[in-house]
Design a protein around this nucleic acid. Structure first.
Length: 414
RNA sequence: GUGAGUGUAGCUCAACCGGCAGAGCAUUGGACUGUGGCUCCAAUGGUUGGGGGUUCAAGUCCCCUCACUCACCCCA
């Protein structure tokens, strides 16, 4: 028996409907906010991600699916931002630009709760706006979207990790501060400090956290411009009426972030509790060879979000289902014509095997959730009507063939 | 890449110290010949994830392997 690769899923039924409901809600909500959907290739040249995410991050080092064809090295995209910026630059799109993407991403990690090797991301990118207002605005939009689809009990955490100048200055300060404590830190943290020093604050070990609790934080060591920017972001968030918590230990895993970073988290998700993460990345566009352009954006993990939302997501318009039970092979022509008529009227219609007993067919009608069973056999043919059984009430009506069109259209709205 | 846990019928799970592989639900048929759901009766359903070993005897103990789950790492 064939099996799907580790970390992938077959999506169907309720799960896929819920996911698709989120996607269409995102398209219409962010569409109303001026975001235009963009779809970039599932794979890019691998170098794009080295440059954007950071060549020393774990994602680039061993989580990307890479493959070489005709001496060219490709990579399945592990995230969306790099591709969107590449597309923006390559297609010479005008500023300011607002993009929405809904795409599968690929990372070769060990799967666990809320983490897969192929997973969806819904993300927005706002290109060409530098003002703190827009940092706050994309947070506000994320929050309103979550509220719209019925998410509850999430928290918003905010921090600023400054620009390159504040960061390199802070890094030396931190190195001094930590000197005496280095023996207390875990191996991972020592490694982190060399590779991506801010990430030490993400460590889950209490012994490490005890040290970081009393060490100066980057948000208290910003340059004047970054500090002013951060202060204004918090002011705007207050004006928007958004509840958030400042988390001085909040950092991001990707290299390209500057100044504002934020996460939306949800308890009850286990270890992977971040449902939305993003921030400002003013340097990346230039880094990728484009015009010097300030940008903000975030990405959401819809699978994780769905884990937090109770079953009854605002349903897509539930269609009424018809089921035709024909009483013998010789009615196939009539049955098919009737099926077409019902489907042309915009309804869902399934047909039973006319060779099966009426009992077996009505049972199947029940099983597929049919609202109406239509029985057609010798009596109906002779006298020119359809027997229509309402599967909820059990009530049964004879509807003359000539009246059937109006029956169909009446049924539509109910 | 590292660690822990779990794999028994389509699904959810039993099976004592190693001693004939079981139940509920689902499926199919019947009671009810052209009428589903509810009830009752019956039937079908298994190389106990796979391979090897120990033993008179392995679902059970040992080794290997595969898959899933959770956590570390990392991240949406």
């Amino acid at each position: 028996m064939y099996q799907k690769p580790k970390g992938t899923r077959d999506l169907f039924g309720k799960e896929l409907r819920r996911l698709e409901a989120m996607n269409s809600a995102a398209r219409s909500f962010f569409g109303r906010n001026g975001y235009e959907e963009i779809r970039t290739p599932s794979f890019e040249f691998a170098a794009l991600f080295d440059r954007s995410i950071g060549a020393t991050t774990d994602i680039v080092e061993h989580e990307i699916y890479k493959f070489e064809v005709s001496k060219k090295l490709y990579a399945l995209r592990p995230e969306g931002t790099a591709s969107v910026l590449r597309a923006f630059i390559e297609n010479r799109i005008a500023l300011p630009a607002r993009f929405l993407y809904i795409c599968s991403m690929y990372r070769r990690e060990r799967p666990q709760k809320g983490r897969y090797r192929e997973f969806e991301q819904i993300g927005i990118e706002l290109l060409g706006e530098s003002k703190p207002f827009f940092d706050a605005e994309i947070i506000d939009q994320a929050k309103r979207y979550l509220d719209l689809i019925g998410a509850r009990d999430y928290t918003i955490e905010l921090n600023s990790i400054g620009c390159q100048d504040c960061r390199s200055e802070y890094r030396e300060k931190l190195r001094e501060e930590l000197k005496a404590d280095i023996p207390k830190l875990c191996d991972d943290c020592r490694r982190r400090f060399e590779k991506n020093f801010l990430r030490i604050f993400d460590c889950k070990k209490e012994t490490c956290q005890a040290v970081y609790d009393r060490v100066p934080k980057i948000s208290d060591n910003l340059c004047t411009e970054c500090a002013e920017h951060y202060a204004q972001v918090t002011e705007y968030l207050n004006k928007f009426g958004i509840c958030y918590a400042e988390n001085k230990k909040l950092v991001r895993g990707l290299d390209y972030y500057t100044r504002t970073v934020f996460e939306f988290k949800h308890g009850g998700l286990g270890a992977q509790d971040t449902i939305i993460a993003g921030g400002r990345y003013d340097l990346l566009m230039k880094e990728l060879g484009g015009p010097d352009t300030p940008c903000t954006g975030w990405a959401m993990g819809p699978e994780r979000l769905l884990l937090t939302i109770p079953e009854d997501l605002p349903a897509l318009n539930a269609k009424e289902i018809f089921f035709i039970a024909g009483m013998g092979e010789r009615f196939v022509g009539d049955i098919v014509a009737l099926r077409n008529q019902i489907q042309d009227g915009g309804h869902v219609c399934m047909v039973g095997d006319p060779g099966e007993s009426i009992k077996a067919q009505v049972r199947k009608a029940n099983r597929v959730g049919a609202k109406y069973s239509i029985i057609y056999g010798e009596d109906e043919e002779r006298e020119g009507y359809y027997t229509v059984k309402n599967m909820d009430s059990g009530e049964q009506r004879k509807i003359p063939k000539n009246d059937f069109v109006s029956f169909i259209s009446e049924t539509k709205g109910s």
